[in-house]
Amino acid sequence: MSSSPLASAPEGRPGLPGAALGGLALAALLAVALPFFTTGYVVYIANLLLVFVVLCLGLHIVIGETGQFSMAHAAFYGIGIYASALANRAVDLPYPFAMLFGALVAGAVGLFIGALALRMRDIYLALATFAFGEAMQWVFANWDSVTNGPNGLRIAPARFGPLEILSDKQAYPFVLFFCLLAIGFTVVVSRSRLGRAFRAVRESEVAAMAMGIDVRRTRVIGFGLSAAVAGFAGGMFGLFQTFIHPDSLGFQTTILVLTMVVVGGLGSIWGAIGGAIVFGLISEVLRQAPQYQEIIYGAILMLFMMYAPHGLFAFVGERIREARHGR
C-alpha cells in the first residue's frame, strides 16, 4: 500500500463508454467541490459514505473476488476503529500510522479467520464468520480495560503534524484521499496475478489447482486482505468521528455492507462502490420516513433479488440496451 499509490488511482477503465467517462468526471468534480458549497452535515454524510465505500471494497475482495461468504465485516471494521484509535492515543505520530496499525491488526485477525475458514464453506462459512462477528461485538462490549466496554471509546482527534482534524470539512480531503487510495489498491490487486488467482479459485478450485495456484494460500490471503481493507475503513472513520460504541458494530452493519455490495452488483468493484453510495444515500433519506423505513428497506432487498440480482447498474444497463435494440 506504500508505493506511489496515486499512480494506480482509477482514471477511467479501458473500454468504458463515453457517457460513463463523462459521468465519472462529473462525479470527480462534485467530490472535489463538495465542501465549498454544502454544510458540514452533507460533508459528514459524504465522509460516512466514503468509509462505507471502503468497507464494501473489503467485502468485495472476499465475496466478489474469491467467492467466499463472510459475515464478520463489522468485526474487522471495529477492530480497525479500536486499534487505530488506541494507537493514535498511545503514540504521538501522524494519524496514517495509526490507520496502518488498525489495518494490520484487522488483517492479522482476518488471516487467522481465513485459516479456520479453510475447513468449511458456503453456509457453514457464513455461519462461522457470523458467529465470530457476534463474539467480537461481545468482546468490544466486555473488554473494559481496552475498549472502555459499554461506555464506548472516545476517539482523540487525528493529527497530521501541526494540523488537528476537528471538523467534517477538515477531515473530508483526507477521507476522500484514503478512499481513492483504497479503490486504487483494490483495482491493482484485482488486476494482479493474485487477483487472477482469486477469481480462478472462485470459478473452480480444481481448475485453479491444475493451473498451479495454491488454493489454500489464496483463500487465506483473500480473507486477510479483505479484513485489512475493512480495518483501514475503521481508521478512516476515526478521522472525523469522535466516539465509537460497540452497539454500532453488530450484525446490522455487516448486513448493511453486504446489501450495498449486492445492490451494486456482486463481483464488480464499480458495483461495490456504486452500491455503497446509492444504498448509503437511500438509508439516510429513509431517516425522513421513520414509520416505514424497515418495511421499505426489506422490500428493496427482496425486489432487488427478484428483479435485479446482478445489481442496480447491470439492471439499468440492460434496460438501456433493451431500449436501444427495441428501436
Binding site: 457464513a126 449486492v262 418495511i295 428497506y297 422490500a299 432487498l301 427482496m302
Partner: peptide, 18 residues
C-alpha cells in the same frame, strides 16, 4: 447463487419486523 436467496430472506425479516 445462494447469497441472493439469503438476502431475499433477510429482506423478508425486515418487512415482518417493520
Amino acid at each position: 447463487d445462494l447469497v441472493y436467496l439469503v438476502i431475499a430472506t433477510l429482506g423478508l425479516s425486515y418487512v415482518l419486523k417493520g
